[in-house]
Computed example of a mutant assay.
Amino acid sequence: MKISKKIATVLFTVFFTVLASAQDKKPLSPAASAYGKINEANINIIYSSPSVRGREIWGGLVPYGQVWRAGANAPTVFAVDREITVEGKKLPAGKYSFYIIPEEGNFTIIFGKDRSMSASKYDSSQDQLRITVKPKKKTNLTESLEYSVNSNNVTLTWEYLEIPISVK
């Protein structure tokens, strides 16, 4: 079977157009990071940032009462180069996996020693620190999950919630 030169050229063009457009697509949960200093401690948070895209997040996509990796694709990494105090409890310098267990009232924040764990293989014996915080409701939508390192806290903001975590 012989393919004409014109058909081969069209197929070649279509193939490479599709291939090029697939490479240009933005991932649904792109890699992101937040960096800042609180007192003398450098804090770096590395995560994947999912979007709301019309979904119910808290109690929906992120179920209440279950460990969530605080981002998409892999556990979020929380790195600090000096000991800090988080909600009144000491956290040594190091790199930690960062998890959240949301509840309708307070949220449990977990700093884990094993950064290779996924939420589905979470092991509480690897916890370095657990704290409880109260999320704040917001009136405006934050479409993509974002972390910020501020002068006295680290804040996770997504959908209609803000989760401030006191750091000294």
Rank of each mutant, 00 (worst) to 15 (best):
K6S: 11
T9E: 00
F16R: 07
F16G: 02
V18A: 15
L19E: 07
L19T: 15
S21C: 12
Q23P: 00
Q23L: 13
K26P: 02
P30T: 07
A31N: 08
A32S: 13
A34L: 06
G36D: 06
K37W: 09
I38G: 05
A41T: 15
I43L: 14
I46H: 11
Y47T: 01
S51I: 06
R53A: 13
Y64K: 03
W68F: 05
W68E: 06
A70H: 03
A72E: 11
N73Q: 09
A74C: 09
T76Y: 12
D81Q: 13
I84K: 03
I84F: 06
T85F: 03
V86W: 01
E87S: 14
L91P: 01
P92R: 08
P92V: 02
K95I: 02
S97D: 13
F98V: 09
Y99R: 02
I100K: 06
P102K: 07
N106R: 12
F107T: 06
R115E: 12
S116Q: 12
S116A: 12
M117K: 08
M117W: 10
S118P: 02
Q126T: 15
Q128M: 13
L129N: 05
K134R: 13
K136Y: 09
K137Y: 10
K137T: 11
T139I: 11
T139W: 00
N140A: 13
L141T: 13
L141C: 13
T142M: 09
E143R: 07
E143P: 01
S144T: 14
L145S: 00
E146L: 06
N152R: 07
N153Q: 13
T157L: 06
E162V: 02
I165G: 00
K168G: 10
K168D: 08
